[in-house]
Protein backbone atom coordinates (compact mmCIF):
# COMPACT_ATOMS: atom_id res chain seq x y z
CA UNK A 1 0.00 0.00 0.00
CA UNK A 2 2.61 2.48 1.10
CA UNK A 3 4.88 1.39 -1.71
CA UNK A 4 2.10 1.98 -4.21
CA UNK A 5 1.41 5.48 -2.86
CA UNK A 6 5.13 6.16 -3.09
CA UNK A 7 5.32 5.00 -6.70
CA UNK A 8 2.25 7.04 -7.69
CA UNK A 9 3.64 10.14 -5.99
CA UNK A 10 7.06 9.72 -7.54
CA UNK A 11 5.71 9.24 -11.04
CA UNK A 12 3.45 12.28 -10.60
CA UNK A 13 6.48 14.27 -9.42
CA UNK A 14 8.42 13.06 -12.46
CA UNK A 15 5.65 14.18 -14.80
CA UNK A 16 5.47 17.59 -13.15
CA UNK A 17 9.24 17.99 -13.45
CA UNK A 18 9.09 16.99 -17.11
CA UNK A 19 6.34 19.55 -17.75
CA UNK A 20 8.38 22.27 -16.03
CA UNK A 21 11.42 21.50 -18.20
CA UNK A 22 9.35 21.47 -21.34
CA UNK A 23 7.52 24.71 -20.44
CA UNK A 24 10.78 26.47 -19.57
CA UNK A 25 12.13 25.41 -22.95
CA UNK A 26 9.06 26.65 -24.86
CA UNK A 27 8.61 29.89 -22.93
CA UNK A 28 12.31 30.82 -22.90
CA UNK A 29 12.22 30.58 -26.70
CA UNK A 30 9.08 32.75 -26.85
CA UNK A 31 9.90 35.35 -24.21
CA UNK A 32 13.63 36.00 -24.23
CA UNK A 33 14.52 38.58 -26.86
CA UNK A 34 16.78 37.15 -29.57
CA UNK A 35 20.48 37.95 -29.90
CA UNK A 36 23.26 37.91 -27.34
CA UNK A 37 22.24 38.07 -23.68
CA UNK A 38 23.60 40.89 -21.55
CA UNK A 39 22.02 40.52 -18.13
CA UNK A 40 21.26 37.44 -16.08
CA UNK A 41 18.02 38.80 -14.60
CA UNK A 42 14.71 38.62 -16.46
CA UNK A 43 13.85 42.13 -17.68
CA UNK A 44 10.49 43.90 -17.31
CA UNK A 45 9.07 42.30 -20.44
CA UNK A 46 10.56 38.87 -20.02
CA UNK A 47 9.36 38.21 -16.48
CA UNK A 48 5.61 38.73 -17.05
CA UNK A 49 5.93 37.02 -20.45
CA UNK A 50 7.31 33.88 -18.76
CA UNK A 51 4.46 33.89 -16.22
CA UNK A 52 1.79 34.52 -18.85
CA UNK A 53 3.34 31.83 -21.01
CA UNK A 54 2.82 29.22 -18.28
CA UNK A 55 -0.76 30.38 -17.61
CA UNK A 56 -1.75 30.53 -21.30
CA UNK A 57 -0.24 27.11 -21.93
CA UNK A 58 -2.37 25.69 -19.13
CA UNK A 59 -5.45 27.51 -20.49
CA UNK A 60 -4.80 26.07 -23.94
CA UNK A 61 -4.30 22.65 -22.40
CA UNK A 62 -7.69 23.03 -20.80
CA UNK A 63 -9.30 23.96 -24.13
CA UNK A 64 -7.91 20.72 -25.58
CA UNK A 65 -9.24 18.62 -22.72
CA UNK A 66 -12.69 20.19 -23.03
CA UNK A 67 -12.74 19.50 -26.78
CA UNK A 68 -11.62 15.92 -26.27
CA UNK A 69 -14.48 15.37 -23.85
CA UNK A 70 -16.92 16.78 -26.39
CA UNK A 71 -15.57 14.36 -29.00
CA UNK A 72 -16.02 11.42 -26.65
CA UNK A 73 -19.66 12.47 -26.38
Amino acid sequence: QELQTFVVNESQRARIQASIHSLTDTCFRKCISPGAIKKGALDRNEEPCMRNCVERFMDANFVVLKELEKLRG
Binding site: T26, K30, C49, R56, F57, D59, A60, N61, V63, V64
Partner: peptide, 22 residues
Amino acid sequence: LNEHCFERCVPKPGSSLSKGEE
Protein backbone atom coordinates in the same frame (compact mmCIF):
# COMPACT_ATOMS: atom_id res chain seq x y z
CA LEU B 1 -0.52 18.82 -30.31
CA ASN B 2 -0.26 21.24 -27.38
CA GLU B 3 3.33 22.01 -28.30
CA HIS B 4 2.65 22.64 -32.00
CA CYS B 5 -0.57 24.58 -31.49
CA PHE B 6 0.77 26.72 -28.65
CA GLU B 7 3.75 27.57 -30.85
CA ARG B 8 1.42 28.50 -33.71
CA CYS B 9 -1.53 30.11 -32.03
CA VAL B 10 0.00 31.96 -29.07
CA PRO B 11 3.07 33.79 -30.43
CA LYS B 12 3.02 36.39 -27.60
CA PRO B 13 1.32 35.08 -24.44
CA GLY B 14 -0.79 37.89 -22.90
CA SER B 15 -2.78 38.19 -19.70
CA SER B 16 -5.56 35.94 -21.02
CA LEU B 17 -6.22 33.65 -23.96
CA SER B 18 -7.86 35.87 -26.60
CA LYS B 19 -10.90 34.66 -28.56
CA GLY B 20 -8.72 34.53 -31.70
CA GLU B 21 -6.10 32.43 -29.96
CA GLU B 22 -8.74 30.04 -28.68
